[in-house]
């Protein structure tokens, strides 16, 4: 791998229009870009959603991804957060099957990584929840390998710039013109 080949977290503000996710996913597929993880949800403005996606590639590819995203009509703003000072995290749910002798160990892991039990089935099957950066959830998964993992669900990283940057773009309503 060359040195400028790296993982990027890109956040995309989009208008909540029919099919917008399909447009983004379709553009990635059509141009051969990768999506490693994808999270989509409305913002505090119901007309606008935020798509956070994790991708990888050389600088030129990442630049193209940003530019090609901007070509989509429903896309309002694209930001590559990789070089920014950001908080990043993903939500991970893990279902493990344990016997009573393993309980202590599970608690230790929960303690260490700030996780919690969200479902307990007869003390034998536990659903654990962690909110950590993707790299850390990888670690947690590795630590949990000593138990029988039944199922894992992860959202992929979402991210937000630290500190008080400019007023959020979308706090104003979407501009409309009569032209």
């Amino acid at each position: 791998m060359e040195d400028n080949y790296s993982k990027h977290t890109i956040t995309v503000l989009v208008e909540n229009e029919f099919g917008v996710l399909a447009r983004i996913a379709g553009m990635f597929a059509a141009r051969g870009f990768n999506i490693d993880a994808l999270a989509v949800a409305p913002t505090e403005n119901s007309k606008i959603s935020r798509v956070t996606l994790v991708t990888h590639g050389h600088e030129r590819i990442i630049e193209q991804i940003v530019k090609q995203l901007y070509r989509l009509v429903d896309v309002l703003k694209v930001q590559d957060l990789s070089d920014e000072d950001c908080v990043r995290c993903e939500l991970m749910l893990v279902k493990v099957s344990i016997d009573s002798s393993q309980k202590e160990k599970v608690f230790a892991i929960l303690e260490e990584y700030g996780g919690r039990i969200v479902d307990d089935y007869q003390g034998k099957i536990l659903t654990l929840e962690f909110v950590k950066e993707h790299e850390v959830t990888e670690e947690i998964l590795a630590a949990l390998k000593s138990f029988k993992i039944l199922e894992t669900v992860r959202t992929g990283n979402i991210a937000m710039q630290k500190g008080g940057h400019e007023e959020a773009f979308y706090s104003a309503d979407i501009n409309e013109i009569n032209e």
């Binding site: 208008e15 009509v73 979407i174 501009n175 409309e176 013109i177 009569n178 032209e179």
Partner: peptide, 8 residues
């Protein structure tokens, strides 16, 4: 002229 479209 009363129809508003989204700005681009």
């Amino acid at each position: 002229d009363q129809i508003k479209i989204r700005k681009r």
